[in-house]
């Protein structure tokens, strides 16, 4: 009897261990997300909080059923009617896409150099990549204001050297947003790339050379294809937060820099339109998650 007891205790413990991550996701991702979805289906109201709940769980099942049948997707329809929204989405995707590409081009050589550096140097180099995280993200973006603004450090330097005669208007502009995103997200590209490149067996490159493949060709035929998992992970880590980025376009971007994070913020705080801003957030999530799921499915099939 003792044996079955202990084994059932064992399985209960195992169940608990497995359940913890799910619980975490349910509590901190699914539940808030469902609340956002619920708000997005409501109508605005001058109230606290500023919306008319579409569903009332306390009124009993009959009322709830009635409410479910009357649910309106007006807020989602509204997003398609005002050009501001889809322009914001498109502009965000474009900025995130170009930034991701720039970060990949800058981050790959850095990660490659780190992975090929002498062993005793690698930890230090890794530390240097992580070091900026020790300063608040906000402060680092503010620092870029100090560098890029018309009377900022960069212009002062260029003026004193004599490269330019008039200060450049880098900030506020979309260019400054690109600079901010590339700078801020670079480590998220370097780290996964470094992890895959460091594991790469260098004898593979020797084998390629032995079979008549010069180094540059060997990079494209061996190194790059084998680092693809790192490239994909890095691109996801950069692209996803960059699409929804708010702080960087808000601080460095001009009024012409349209990004969905800014639009969402304005909708939420300036217009106090919670339902529409919730709808904006839900659509943003769908735009990001659905292609990623499709991509991962395709990858799984390809590897089988």
């Amino acid at each position: 009897m003792a044996l079955t007891n202990s084994s059932s205790g064992h399985s209960r413990l195992r169940w608990l261990v497995v359940a913890i991550p799910y619980l975490w996701l349910i509590l901190l991702f699914l539940a808030p997300f469902l609340i956002v979805v619920k708000i997005s289906l409501s109508a605005t109201a001058i109230a606290m909080p500023p919306y008319q709940p579409a569903l009332d769980f306390s009124a009993g099942l009959g009322v709830l059923w009635q409410q479910l049948k009357e649910l309106s997707f007006d807020n989602y329809v509204f997003l398609t009617e005002d050009a501001l929204y889809w322009e914001s989405y498109l502009s965000s995707l474009k900025i995130a896409l170009i930034s991701t590409f720039l970060i990949l081009i800058i981050g790959y050589p850095i990660a490659y150099g780190m992975a090929r550096a002498r062993k005793e140097w690698r930890t230090t180099l890794l530390m240097l990549v992580i070091l900026p995280f020790w300063t608040s993200f906000l402060i680092r973006v503010y620092a870029w204001i100090g560098i890029l603004k018309p009377e900022g450090l960069l212009n002062q330097l260029l003026l004193s050297v004599g490269v330019i005669s008039e200060p450049l208007n880098i900030m506020p502009s979309t260019l400054a947003v690109y600079i901010g995103i590339v700078y801020s997200y670079l480590p998220f590209m370097i780290l996964p790339l470094y992890a895959t490149l460091e594991k790469l067996d260098e004898t593979l490159l020797e084998a390629a050379a032995d079979l008549g493949c010069p180094p540059i060709q060997a990079f494209w035929k061996i190194t790059f294809p084998l680092s693809l998992p790192g490239v994909i992970a890095g691109c996801f880590l950069v692209f996803i937060p960059a699409v929804g980025e708010f702080v960087i376009p808000d601080l460095l971007g001009g009024s012409d820099t349209l990004m969905i994070g800014k639009t969402l913020w304005a909708e939420f705080f300036s217009n106090r339109d919670w339902p529409v801003s919730s709808a904006v957030a839900v659509v943003l999530l769908a735009i990001l998650v659905i292609p990623i799921m499709l991509f991962q499915n395709a990858q799984k099939k390809a590897s089988e």
Partner: peptide, 11 residues
Amino acid sequence: NMMFQSYALFP
């Protein structure tokens, strides 16, 4: 041409 100890096959 060399046959490597680890074989070094392209994975």
